[in-house]
Amino acid sequence: MLALNRIHATRIVATPSALDSAQWPDDRLVFRIAADEALITPPMANAVVSDPYAIVVADSGFAGAWLPMEEALPLLEHACEWELPRERPAFAQGSVAGIPAKLWIEKDRVLLIVPAPFVADFEERMA
């Protein structure tokens, strides 16, 4: 049974070029959720990008769970109507079991992320 935990992160809204050229520490996961928006976890309150108007805020609106690849793949094959990226690691987002989800796909494990209000629904649908 899938159990999702709250993800603590930092959300950065900035120009696409500023996000493209930013350097991130190796101990962080950085999800590019839109051309002008990135989510960094664990949080990085002091993140700096080359955009004077960048917005940097704490974000705990998502929850997620790691699954080993052999468990994640069959689940996603069933619950995704779209094609998963092939490269590793890869970030992807879209409808998973009818819920807006984000995926961080590594070589042998996948992080499933959904907005916190959908956690109960998502756990039930993926059960």
């Binding site: 839109a34 051309a35 779209w82 094609e83 990226p85 992807a92 987002q93 879209g94 409808s95």
Partner: peptide, 12 residues
């Protein structure tokens, strides 16, 4: 979607 790739209309 130019950022996310091809998706079913129901996502939009």
């Amino acid at each position: 979607c130019p950022h996310c790739g091809p998706r079913p209309v129901e996502e939009f």
